[in-house]
Each structure stands twice: as structure tokens, then as C-alpha cells.
């Protein structure tokens, strides 16, 4: 598959009063054209910061991308100036966020907000742009789009707002859509609607999606490949069937095992298998593998040296157990 986006050795750090937070600490993965890649991991593992880094909108200060390359269609986004980046954002790479209420501007009608994207990137006039907005609202399945364009965000339900966000993101038919927990704030039934919508739009526009979530169910349903992150590093990467059938990193295994009701028949009334302990503080990472403090399979070297990525059976795994 042709690589649309490739991230090489990315490091984004936050420089705080009490130390440097290595929110992303050497990240390598790629997304193919038209592919959906899931990024999963616990809270604080650096998923959102990865998205912000790609978009070039890491809050600075205190944050800064200090190392690495973000190759989009072969050229390094980190070398782009502000104007070049502005042209990429929204047009080539679009992003939707978790909270559809705070990411929409409450004082403008949703029509105007979608139209703005058309006017910024498509060079359209205002009436044309509003036409476009109505069309996009239709695409994302909002009933009565002619009426709805004139409404304000607070007049819409959460699910509708997220549809508006999707409409905005897709209005310039981006090649890559970064969706940061797009359905976490929504109910299951609305989540199912939204995911179905995203899947159908992906086929229609042939775009790639980087789907950030902590819900492994969504990953299983939507993605072709998965990147598992832990404390700023990628721990495992594999195709989705393979990852669920044969997780190789102890962390991935732990995540899958701690899910209730994965295997209905066998697991009834059984205790869940939790991962002990808590995520380490990024200001005070353990020596060696960052998962070693919680890993029940760790061996001597794990607490001494950080493991590199090992390639095995089309998985890439950051674990010493994979070495031999």
C-alpha cells in the first residue's frame, strides 16, 4: 500500500516548571492511502498529542516537537512554514475532536462555520459556500439541512453536533481524517450511527482515517491496522485481526484480557484479569521498558534497557520477549 502519512522518530515534549514531559518519545508508524488505522492506549499515552503534532498545533509553549519527521505524501510537514501548514490543515488533513460542543463556535450558525472552510480553502463566495454547507449536512444525514444551516450549535443534540464536525472536516475532501475519540461523548446508539456514517463516507471519499480511541470494540469494527501506545511510545502495531487473535505485547494482551465479556461463553462469572498498578508518571519513567513496572512477564533485561521494536509475524512489538 502506498504510504500517505509516515511518522519517523517523532518526539513531542512538554517543557514544564517541574520537568520535561516526553508525551511522545520516539514514534514510528505509517498510514496508507484510504486505510483506517486505530491508535489505542490508556489516558495520557500520547494519542491526542500525536494528532496535534501531525496537525502542527501542539500548544507552544510548553509543548514542542523536538525531533523526527512527519512525511505527508513524501514531504516533511515539520519543515513547512505557517502559511504552508495552514493550506494543508483542513484541506489535506482534517481533524475532528472528542467534544463536539467545545469545538464548535457557539456564536456562529453551523452553516457559517462549514461555509468558512469552503471559503478558506475552496475560494468560494459566501452564497456558494452556504450551498456547499447544505450539501455537506445532507451528506452527513442531518434532516432538513436547509433549515438546520441557520441554527446554532446549542440547538443541536450531541450526535448532530458531531455530524456537523464531520461535515466540516470532510467539506474539502481531505486525504486524511484524524478523528480523536469522535464518539466518546456519545451514547452507544448514536455512536453506532456516527461510526456507520464515517465508514460510508470513507468509502465515498476514499480517504484515510487515523482513529484515536480507547474503545477496542470500535477498533475491531472500523480499523485495518492498530497502533497500541503506552506512555508515549508505540508498544505494538499489527493488522487488526492478527492483533486481536494473537496479541504479542504483554500490554496488548493485558488490555484485551481486562475487557469484560470479550468471550461470552467462556468468561461468564469469571474474574476479570486486570493489569496491576497504574501508568507511570512521564516525569519519572522507570528504567528500561516503561511497561515493566506493571508487566507480569518481565525478565531481567526489561528493567535495565528499553526494548527496540522487534518485527515478528507482521507485528512490530516493543518487548524483549520477542527477541531471539
Amino acid at each position: 500500500m502506498e504510504k500517505l502519512l509516515e511518522i519517523v522518530g517523532l518526539k513531542t515534549h512538554f517543557f514544564l516548571d517541574n520537568g520535561v514531559v516526553p508525551a511522545i518519545d520516539g514514534l514510528d508508524f505509517w498510514i496508507g492511502r484510504g486505510e483506517t488505522v486505530g491508535v489505542v492506549g490508556e489516558s495520557g499515552s500520547g494519542k491526542s498529542v500525536t494528532a496535534l503534532s501531525i496537525m502542527g498545533v501542539v500548544p507552544n509553549p510548553p509543548g514542542k516537537t523536538v525531533e523526527g519527521e512527519i512525511l505527508f505524501e513524501g514531504s516533511d510537514l515539520l519543515a513547512y512554514d505557517a502559511e504552508q501548514m495552514r493550506r494543508i490543515r483542513g484541506k489535506e488533513i482534517a481533524m475532528i475532536l472528542q467534544d463536539p460542543m467545545t469545538s464548535l463556535n457557539p456564536v456562529f450558525t453551523i452553516g457559517n462555520q462549514i461555509a468558512e472552510v469552503f471559503m478558506l480553502h475552496g475560494g468560494k463566495s459566501h452564497p456558494e459556500a452556504i450551498e456547499g454547507a447544505i450539501e455537506m449536512l445532507q451528506v452527513v444525514g442531518i434532516p432538513n439541512p436547509e433549515k438546520r444551516v441557520h441554527e446554532y450549535p446549542h440547538q443541536l443534540s450531541g450526535g448532530m453536533r458531531q455530524r456537523v464536525m464531520i461535515a466540516m472536516a470532510l467539506s474539502c475532501t481531505p486525504k486524511l481524517l484524524i478523528a480523536d475519540e469522535p464518539t466518546t461523548a456519545l451514547d452507544v446508539t448514536i455512536q453506532a450511527q456516527t461510526l456507520a456514517l464515517m465508514a460510508s463516507l470513507k468509502d465515498r471519499y476514499k480517504m484515510a482515517i487515523m482513529l484515536i480511541t480507547h474503545n477496542l470494540g470500535i477498533v475491531a469494527e472500523m480499523c485495518q491496522r492498530v497502533v497500541v501506545m503506552y506512555a508515549g511510545k508505540m508498544m505494538e502495531e499489527a493488522e487488526v485481526e492478527s492483533l486481536f487473535a494473537n496479541p504479542m505485547h504483554p500490554y496488548t494482551r493485558g488490555l484485551l484480557r481486562s475487557l469484560p465479556g470479550v468471550d461470552r461463553k467462556e468468561r461468564r462469572h469469571q474474574r476479570l484479569v486486570a493489569i496491576p498498578g497504574i501508568v507511570p508518571n512521564l516525569l519519572n519513567l522507570p528504567k528500561g521498558c516503561r511497561f515493566s513496572t506493571r508487566c507480569e512477564e518481565h525478565i531481567g533485561i526489561c528493567k535495565e534497557e528499553e526494548p527496540p521494536l522487534f518485527a515478528r509475524d507482521r507485528h512490530r512489538v516493543r518487548c524483549w520477549l520477542m527477541k531471539d
Partner: peptide
């Protein structure tokens, strides 16, 4: 602060 880590 990681409070599960014993501090030497």
C-alpha cells in the same frame, strides 16, 4: 507523582 513506586 507515581505513588506506587517505593522511594529509596
Amino acid at each position: 507523582m507515581d505513588i506506587d513506586q517505593p522511594i529509596r
